[in-house]
Each structure stands twice: as structure tokens, then as C-alpha cells.
Simulated assay, not measured.
Amino acid sequence: MAKSLVLLVVLVFFTTVQATNPNSDADFTVPSGMKIDGDFFTYTGLRGSPSSSSNGIDKKTVTMKNFPALDGMGISMELLEFSPGAVNVPHTHPRGAEIMFVVDGALTVGTTDSTGQLYKNDLQKGDVFVFPTGMVHYQANFDKSNKAIGVSAFSSVNAGTIDLPKNIFGSNMPGEVLAKAFKISADTVRQLETNQM
């Protein structure tokens, strides 16, 4: 019995080690045909201002798609510029935690846990806030005169983003389901659906 238990523990340990670190025989992953030098480990795409958006939040992302050195690293990041009054609507990242650093200005941020408890704070330049994997959260620049800049890092090469208003009211879910779920009228559901298009 004791030998069987030891064998089971050893088997689970080695299976877990293999499952969590498949590239343990290499320092990093190199795409086929790519030259390796300092440039391989350097990304310059954050220079300059991000492209303009319609929601007042301009973004530049750093992912494996545009920075191949991230392959196998399990990380990615994003530069966000919030126009005065801009709100990054409630959303989740189902495949990774997020840590946000405020580079300039001020942001109000918050996240909820699985019981619906809200944890929020007002961040200033130099502050950091963490959003656990899959938890609903938001960021807002309530300053009506000044922009705010933040850098978010993710514990995943593709943390994914589920924009709750768009994914709920822009998904063609039956209006009756949404009206009952949010305890709102069918007319309000139609207005919310129209605003997501």
C-alpha cells in the first residue's frame, strides 16, 4: 500500500511538472527561421501614441502575435491612454490575471469577486492594482480635463477580453431572457442592444 501511494505521488509530481513546463529543455522559444540577437528580445511598438478609438481609450497591445519573443513566456501587456472622462466598461479576462500600473494621471478602478463584492480604489501616478483571473473589473478616468495612462500586464499570452455590455446585449440573446435577468423592460433591452451595434 505504501509503495503504491509513493508511486502515485511520484507519477502525479512528474505529470504536473511536465504539464506546466513543456519547454523545460530550452531557455526560450524561437520561431523557425528567425534571427536571434538583441532585437529578438526588443519590442518598439509602444513608441508614439496609440491609435484613436471611439470609446476614448486608445490601446497598444504587446502579444505573441506582434512580439514573437513572448512565445512560451506566458505573458503579454497593453498600453492604455484614457481620454478625460473615459471608462473601460466592466469586462473580464478569462485566461489571465491583470496587473495595472498608472504611468500618468489618475484612474478609479474596481473588481468584484464571485459573491459580487466590489473592491475599488482611486489610483494615482505610480500606483498598481491587480485584477484576478476571470473577475469582472473596470477602469475609469473621471478627470474631465486630463488624460490618464496605464500599462497592464497579463499572466497569459492571450488573456482574452469579454466586454460585458457587448457580449450580453450585442450577442442576440433572447430579449425575454435579458429582461428577466436584469429586471428591465423589453424596450430597455432593445435600446441596450441597439447601442452595442
Results as ranks from 00 to 15, higher is better:
Leu11Asp: 06
Gln18Pro: 00
Phe14Arg: 11
Ile184Gln: 03
Val9Arg: 04
Ser152Phe: 15
Ser171Val: 05
Pro132His: 11
Phe13Asn: 06
Met1Arg: 09
Met197Ser: 02
Ala181Ile: 09
Met77Gln: 07
Ser52Glu: 05
Thr188Val: 13
Ala97Cys: 01
Leu7His: 04
Ser83Ala: 12
Tyr119Lys: 14
Leu178Thr: 05
Met100Ser: 11
Thr63Met: 12
Ser52Tyr: 08
Ala148Ser: 13
Ala148Gln: 06
Pro90Ile: 11
Met34Pro: 01
Leu46Gln: 08
Phe101Val: 13
Gly116Cys: 08
Ile75Gly: 07
Val87Asn: 15
Asp25Thr: 08
Phe182Leu: 03
Thr133Phe: 00
Glu78Val: 15
Tyr119Met: 08
Phe41Asp: 02
Met77Leu: 15
Gly110Ser: 04
Asn141Lys: 06
Ser53Met: 02
Phe182Glu: 03
Gln117Lys: 15
Thr42Gln: 05
Asn195Ile: 06
Lys166Phe: 14
Val130Phe: 06
Val6Lys: 13
Val87Asp: 13
Phe14Thr: 14
Val189His: 04
Leu192Glu: 03
His91Asp: 01
His93Asp: 00
Ser155Met: 09
Ile36Phe: 04
Phe142Ile: 07
Gly116Val: 12
Asn146Tyr: 13
Thr20Tyr: 13
Asp113Pro: 05
Asn167Met: 05
Ser114Met: 11
Phe67Met: 01
Lys125Asn: 11
Val12Tyr: 12
Asn121Met: 09
Leu80Asn: 05
Val177Lys: 12
Lys147Asp: 09
Thr92Glu: 00
Arg190Glu: 14
Lys65Ala: 15
Asp39Glu: 14
Met73Pro: 05
Ser152Met: 11
Pro132Tyr: 11
Pro165Lys: 07
Val62Glu: 06
Gln18Glu: 10
Ala148Val: 05
Ala179Glu: 03
Arg190Cys: 04
Asn55Phe: 01
Ser152Trp: 10
Ala153Arg: 12
Asn121Val: 10
Leu118Arg: 01
Ser49Gly: 13
Lys144His: 10
Met197Lys: 15
Gly72Cys: 10
Ala2Asp: 10
Leu80Asp: 03
Asp39Val: 00
Pro132Met: 07
Val10Asn: 08
Phe67Lys: 03
Ser32Trp: 05
Ile99Tyr: 04
Thr108Gln: 14
Val12His: 13
Glu78Arg: 08
Asp104Pro: 04
Met100Val: 15
Gly56Ser: 01
Val30Phe: 10
Ser152Cys: 10
Lys147Asn: 10
Glu98Val: 09
Pro68Phe: 02
Gly33Tyr: 06
Thr63Tyr: 12
Tyr43Cys: 02
Asn55Gln: 08
Thr115Pro: 01
Ser76Gln: 04
Val128Gly: 09
Ile75His: 03
Asp27Glu: 07
Ala86Met: 04
Asn146Lys: 14
Val17Leu: 13
Tyr119Arg: 11
Leu8Gln: 12
Arg95Asp: 15
Ala19His: 02
Ser185Ala: 06
Thr161His: 03
Ser54Ala: 07
Val12Met: 11
Lys60Gln: 08
Met64Cys: 02
Val12Lys: 12
Gly160Asp: 04
Val102Ile: 14
Glu81Arg: 10
Thr44Glu: 05
Asp113Met: 10
Asn55Ala: 00
Pro84Ala: 00
Pro174Leu: 04
Ile162Arg: 11
Ala148Phe: 02
Pro90Asn: 09
Asp27Leu: 14
Lys183Asp: 09
Ile57Met: 04
Gly150Val: 08
Lys147Ser: 15
Asp39Tyr: 01
Gln139His: 10
Ala148Cys: 00
